[in-house]
Amino acid sequence: MNIKTEFSDKTLTAIIEGDIDHHTAKGIRETIDLAVEEKNPSALTLDFGNVQFMDSSGIGLIMGRYRLMKLLNGNLELVNLPEHINRLISLSGLFSLDIIKNKGCEQIETRE
């Protein structure tokens, strides 16, 4: 399984590892949603520091978890975004949701 979850201070942190694509997204989603159901956290943090690859399936995953946390009156936060994922997220418009916390991560690359 390419995901680990940790729970402390009402915050559930999911550390995702490896590739996020259509094939792996289902297992990642199920693991996170199960942990959310069990712990009922007020905040969910997705850690992308160990993600090697992500396509738009990852955007779908983020959007779905955002909706889930809103439903539970909680917050979603994204941390440790690699540059490549930052670019995908800026393309998706998800930045407007104010869920990104760039803890010591690279700048967003702008395309000319």
Binding site: S56, S57, I59, G60, M63, G64, L91, S92, R111
Partner: peptide
């Protein structure tokens, strides 16, 4: 469906 962002072609284009 719900879990798909609808961004596949946009990503390819970009």
């Amino acid at each position: 469906g719900d879990e798909r962002a609808g961004l596949g072609f946009a990503v390819m284009q970009s």
